Computed example of a mutant assay.
Amino acid sequence: MRHASPRHQRGVVTLEYALMLMLGLLPLLLFTFSGVMIMAAQQTLATASAEGARASLRYATPGQRRTAACLAARRSMQWLLQFSRQNPDCSTGGSGPIVVAPAAPCAGLATAQCITVTVSYDYAASPFLPGTATLYGWVMRAPIRSTAVAQLDLGSN
């Protein structure tokens, strides 16, 4: 039986490390990157819903409050809207990724009026990395969403 001399095995270790990098480490890094981006999207949505609810507290008519809430939420989540190529219409209180409900009695306090601002991002429709929507599909069955509620002071307009 003939043994291979070390001279004929040059570069084998380098090739093994290259394959290990491509098939092992690179997918792990891409998976981690997309997870961090999903967390950034969730934080952006939480901020956008809070900013929208805060904007609805300004004294104005109910329609103006809804429009102000939608515009504030849209400003806060602009990078997500641009990435997903969405432009919600705020003239009627929002649509699609931003929904501002009309003033309604607050849960648990029927004498007060509340506005609910809900923002969402559909990761399955616009994944940060191609192919990761299927990978994360078993965890995220619905769009990423955040909701904020503001109790309105209807004392004077």
Rank of each mutant, 00 (worst) to 15 (best):
Q151A: 10
D89P: 01
S146H: 06
S120Q: 08
A69S: 08
F83H: 10
F128R: 04
T118N: 01
S156L: 02
H8P: 02
G155Y: 11
V36S: 08
T147G: 07
D153M: 02
S126H: 06
L23P: 05
T44K: 05
L71H: 07
T116N: 08
P102C: 15
A68S: 15
E51I: 04
P62E: 08
M1Y: 14
G35P: 05
P97W: 00
A55D: 12
R75Y: 12
P27L: 15
T118C: 02
L29I: 13
A48I: 02
A103T: 00
G93Y: 06
A40I: 04
Y17D: 09
L109D: 15
D122E: 10
P6T: 15
L23I: 15
T47Y: 00
T111V: 09
Q151Y: 01
M140G: 12
I38F: 04
C70F: 07
R54T: 10
V99Y: 04
Q9Y: 13
T118D: 05
V36H: 02
G52Q: 02
A46K: 03
M77V: 00
L19D: 12
L81H: 08
L30N: 08
V100R: 01
G11F: 08
M20Y: 11
L154F: 04
M140N: 06
A103H: 00
R145G: 08
A18I: 13
L29Y: 10
R85P: 03
L19W: 12
G155W: 09
L28F: 09
E16L: 11
R85L: 15
T14H: 11
V36P: 00
Q151G: 00
P127T: 10
V149I: 15
V13E: 11
A55C: 10
A18E: 14
P105E: 03
N87A: 15
Q151I: 01
L135S: 11
C114G: 07
D153P: 00
C114P: 02
M77L: 01
S34V: 06
A4M: 13
G24R: 04
P88K: 03
A124R: 03
V12M: 11
L45E: 01
L71Q: 06
A124S: 07
R2H: 14
A40W: 06
S156E: 01
L129Y: 09
R85C: 08
Q9P: 04
A48N: 01
T44W: 00
W79I: 03
Q64D: 15
P105R: 01
G96L: 07
S95T: 13
F33T: 13
L154W: 08
A41Q: 05
S156F: 01
L15F: 12
T132Y: 12
A133H: 01
D89I: 11
A150H: 05
A48Q: 09
T61E: 09
A41E: 09
V139G: 10
M37Q: 14
T47P: 02
Y121N: 05
E51W: 04
A150Y: 00
S76Y: 03
V149S: 11
T61A: 10
I115L: 13
P97T: 05
R58N: 07
A103I: 03
A104P: 03
V149E: 13
M20N: 11
R74E: 01
S49P: 03
T67L: 07
M1V: 13
L15P: 02
L23C: 15
M39R: 08
L23T: 10
D122W: 01
F128L: 10
P105W: 02
A50Y: 07
L81E: 11
